[in-house]
Design a protein around this nucleic acid. Structure first.
Length: 164
DNA sequence: ATACCGGCTAGCC
DNA sequence: GGGCTAGCCGGTA
């Protein structure tokens, strides 16, 4: 495991912690966390040698190598292609990855997302339009992020194709 | 192999 | 709409 750098970067959703290596961004967390808390997380990921970098920008690429399971990596990659201002359902993502019906498995893949924010798992919602869970800050934060991106969230719900 | 788990869904009140 | 239940699937112990 190479030495990682990390910084508190300004994003469209406010300050977020990012950690990266030459292989790409490998960890992220909301900026409300203290530096110590984020570094502790890096420790858990085996990035104990991470050092603070104040000027460097995190790379564009994302490192999914720590994600267990080919299906989960595939799902996260598909998720990263969801445009800002749009949403997909867990089921749609499952179908796109060749496993229609694996909506629940997609949910667990989202929960394994090493770089929330960068891989926009907040844009994945339930089939009935309810927002669903968000492990990187809860459904409340999920809603805030979607609204900030211009998604119409009404009464904790988002418009989905058929329904409305 | 086998049992259990989780950011889900579909069907039925 | 809400609440509940039983299926569902990939992954892990």
């Amino acid at each position: 495991m190479p030495v990682a750098s990390y910084s508190l970067a300004q994003t469209a959703h406010g300050p977020w912690w990012y950690a990266w290596t030459d292989d790409g961004v490998c960890a992220a967390a909301q900026g409300e966390l203290s530096e110590g808390e984020f570094v502790d997380r890096l420790d858990v990921l085996g990035l104990a040698e991470a050092r603070r970098s104040d000027d460097a920008h995190p790379p564009e690429s994302v490192d999914f190598s720590a994600v267990r399971g080919a299906f989960r990596r595939k799902v996260l990659e598909a998720c990263s292609r969801i445009p800002e201002g749009e949403v997909r359902t867990y089921g749609q993502l499952a179908a796109e990855c060749g496993s229609p019906g694996a909506a629940r498995a997609v949910g667990t893949a989202m929960a394994q997302n090493p770089v929330p924010g960068r891989v926009p798992c907040h844009r994945v919602v339930r089939g009935d339009g309810h927002l669903g869970q968000y492990s990187a800050g809860g459904s409340v934060r999920k809603q805030e992020m979607l609204i900030r991106e211009g998604v119409a969230v009404d009464d904790g719900r988002v418009p989905i194709g058929s329904a409305e």
